[in-house]
Amino acid sequence: MPRAVAGPEIERLIQLLARLPGLGPRSARRAALHLIKKRETLMQPLAAAFDDALGKIVTCRVCGNIDVRDPCTVCTDAEREVGTLIVVADVSDLWALERAGTIRAKYHVLGGVLSPLDGIGPDDLNLSGLVQRVHQDEVREVILALGATVDAQTTAHYITDLLRGRDVAVTRLAHGVPVGGELDYLDEGTLSAAMRARTPL
């Protein structure tokens, strides 16, 4: 086991940074060193921002988005299409679609996708909330923006069956989303094309 080259506080910082997506041990060390070198201009403002966010960030009880208000900014936006509901697996997918700026609709965050291998079943996702919103909010179209992985497509088919017989059109993203691709890693142009070319299920 390699010996620690810094004090326990710095080692803890490195270990915590290494838990972030996309950061391994080496990247975490570089990030920690950069933060330490820029203590006054970067580390202190970042620590203050974390502290501020920790006390204010909430999960929207309507759609599942993360914001500093509940209901969130998206849900309270009066200019959005109330008859269209975009279903996403995670908040990162919601943010990706918002960056693309293709459609101004409401969202519903499932909190994941069905994955029997990982033990994630229908009861682990926000599916009951989706059915309730479709019924109560008079939704005319549900857009399944769930990516092209096997688990995502399984989830899309499950939701389609769940909404069958209701007076709502169920569509999904089409061209532009590669098989096995995740929405959060796609550029805005690809997401825009996929949203425009959505197809019925």
Rank of each mutant, 00 (worst) to 15 (best):
A4G: 09
A6L: 09
E9R: 15
I10V: 15
I10W: 00
E11S: 05
L13W: 03
Q15A: 15
A18M: 03
L23E: 02
G24Q: 01
P25R: 09
S27T: 05
S27M: 05
A28K: 00
K38E: 12
R39Y: 10
M43A: 11
Q44T: 09
A47R: 01
A49K: 06
F50T: 06
F50Y: 00
D52F: 06
K56Q: 15
V58S: 11
R61C: 05
C63R: 08
I66E: 14
D67H: 10
V68S: 13
V68F: 11
T73Y: 12
G83S: 15
G83P: 00
L85D: 06
D90T: 13
V91Y: 12
S92P: 03
S92K: 11
D93N: 09
L97T: 07
E98A: 08
T102K: 09
T102F: 11
T102P: 04
V113T: 12
L114K: 01
S115A: 15
P116S: 08
G119P: 04
G121Y: 06
D123R: 12
D123L: 12
G129K: 05
V134E: 03
V134D: 01
H135V: 12
H135D: 14
H135R: 15
D137W: 09
D137C: 02
E141C: 05
E141G: 03
G147F: 03
T149A: 07
T149M: 11
A152Y: 04
Q153Y: 04
T155C: 09
T155E: 04
H157G: 08
Y158T: 05
L163D: 02
R164Y: 06
R164E: 14
R164S: 15
G165D: 15
R166H: 11
V170K: 03
R172A: 00
A174E: 10
G176D: 04
V177G: 00
L183K: 06
Y185I: 14
L186Q: 10
S192W: 08
A194L: 09
T199E: 15
P200E: 14
L201S: 06
